[in-house]
Every structure is written in C-alpha cells, then in structure tokens.
C-alpha cells in the first residue's frame, strides 16, 4: 500500500475520487436539503451559509443536487466498465486463445466499433431506444467492449509465449486452467488501469448525453443535465453552471490521476522509461 501512496498521481487521484465516492454514498442517506424539492421562494439564490452552492431556477439546493448527481455518475461509470470488462475480457481471451478465424472475426468487429465516433453512436442508440439512464449506460458500455477486448488479447498473446506458461503446459496443466490460473491474474493490472481511465471517460460521456437530454431523466439530478438547465441562467445565476461543471472536472481529473497513479505503480517498466 505504501508503494501506491509514494506516488503523487495516485495519492491526489485517490483522494479526489474518494471525495466523489463519499459524497455519493453520503447523499444516499443524507443531503442538506431534499435534492428534488422545489421551493419557489428560494429560487436562483447565490451561495450562502444555508445554500453553500446556491439554488437553481426551481429553488432546489445545488449542493444537494451535485451530491446526488455523483450517484448517477458513479453508477454509470461502474456499470459501463462492468459491461466492457466482462464481455471484453471474454472476447479478448477467446481471441487470443483460439486465434485464426475467431480472432479475425472478433477483431474486425472491434475495428468496426472503433470506426464509429462513440458519442455520436451513443446519441443514435439513445434516440432509438429512448432517452434514459439505462440506455445511456448500454450505449456507452457497448463501446467499452472492444477497448477491453483488444487490451486483453494483446496482453494474453504475449503471456502465452512466456516461459512460465510453457512450463505449466509442459507440466500437463490444461489450457483452461492455464488461462484462469496464470493468464488472467497477470492481465489484471492493465485491466484495472484501463478500467479506471474508462470510468473517467464514462462520467464525461454520461454528462454529455445528459447535457443533450439523452441520459439521466428529470427530476433525478445529473451533472450534465444541471449544466444544460443552467445555460439560459448563465448571466443571472452562474453558480448553477459553475458547480456541476467543477464537479465533472473534479471527478474526471480524479479518476484519470488515479488511473495514471495505478499505471506508474503497477507497471514498473513505465516508471523506468520516464
């Protein structure tokens, strides 16, 4: 553990991400105000002791909404990475293990998916399926499959050529056992690094989709939607845009630094190269 915290990127990233996670967890049991409760008398108030981040056009407390918004972001991050990881690793391993035709098909489909601009296709998918958080997660998650599939395949292929695998094979261990016992544990760290980075990307993607009205639906708070709503109030109530904007920047930066830190620590070769 000490190894991790001696890395500045990791320490900063970990702390920033922890703040986001804690805010989200806390919001499940407590927020300063009911995040969805409207109050006509309190609308568009600037930051004050009662409302540290001000209120929005319906008089809802921005701090409470930013906290609740963290839940949407984290759920989207977790689910999309889970979709990408589970299917991506499976396909990547299959690709590496079977090679030839299977590899060819899986990789060409991946290329095809890579060929589409991710956000644009996500917009297409949510337009067809209807805007909702679940569809947004599905749309983003699908694009993560080839990312993880390629990574898994690349690392697994090099592993298969390594001596300890050959040794295991010589010792009569079956191919499946080799895959589960020797290959998979060894690709965990690159997957963890990639997963953290993709987590940050998912937060950004969810914000983009929600900003366009295709992600999280009202009244559930989401940072992207808050930005969208704040647009016409920019000159009057800038806090409505500034705080959700900062929240997005904070979370994305945090998880990216965390990913960087993990890479620096788990992949010593990279450090030496620097």
């Amino acid at each position: 553990m000490k190894r991790f915290f001696s890395n500045l990127n990791f320490t900063v990233g970990f702390t920033m991400s922890l703040v986001v996670v804690l805010a989200a967890v806390l919001s499940l049991v407590w927020t300063p105000f009911d995040a969805d409760k409207m109050n006509a008398k309190n609308r568009l108030q600037g930051p004050s002791w009662t409302h540290p981040l001000g209120t929005d056009q319906y008089g809802r407390d921005t701090l409470s909404r930013v906290m609740t918004g963290a839940v949407s972001s984290i759920i989207v991050g977790l689910v999309t990475v889970a979709i990408g990881l589970s299917l991506g690793v499976l396909l990547g391993l299959a690709s590496a293990y079977f090679g030839k035709f299977v590899d060819e098909v899986i990789m060409r489909i991946s290329d095809l998916l890579f060929g589409f601009p991710a956000v644009l296709t996500a917009i297409l998918i949510t337009s067809i399926l209807g805007p909702s958080m679940i569809n947004a997660m599905l749309a983003i998650g699908i694009f993560y499959i080839p990312v993880f599939a390629r990574l898994t395949r690349a690392v697994a292929m090099t592993l298969w050529e390594r001596e300890f695998i050959t040794a295991a094979r010589a010792g009569g261990v079956g191919e499946w056992t080799i895959t589960w016992r020797h290959v998979l544990p060894n690709i965990l760290s690159p997957l963890l690094i990639q997963g953290t980075v993709q987590f940050a990307v998912a937060i950004l993607a969810e914000a983009s989709l929600s900003y366009l009205g295709l992600g999280t639906q009202p009244p559930t708070a989401s940072w992207g939607r808050m930005l969208n709503e704040a647009q016409t109030f920019m000159s009057r109530a800038p806090w409505m845009a500034i705080f959700p904007g900062l929240a997005i920047a904070w979370a994305v930066l945090g998880f990216n630094l965390l990913g960087d830190g993990l890479r620096d620590t788990l992949d010593p070769k990279m450090v030496r190269m620097r």
């Binding site: 969805d36 409760k37 409207m38 056009q57 319906y58 209807g130 805007p131 009205g213 639906q217 009202p218 009244p219």
Partner: peptide, 22 residues
Amino acid sequence: RRAGEVIADMLGQVGIKLKIEV
C-alpha cells in the same frame, strides 16, 4: 419541459408519482 418538472413535483406532494419522459 419546465412545466412538466414543476407539475411532477406538485402532484408528487399529493401522492401522484409522475415519471418524466422527455
């Protein structure tokens, strides 16, 4: 859109839970 959100809040207070779909 706005009126829908406000009405959903008002009806929610008497027990009518509105799911908003834009």
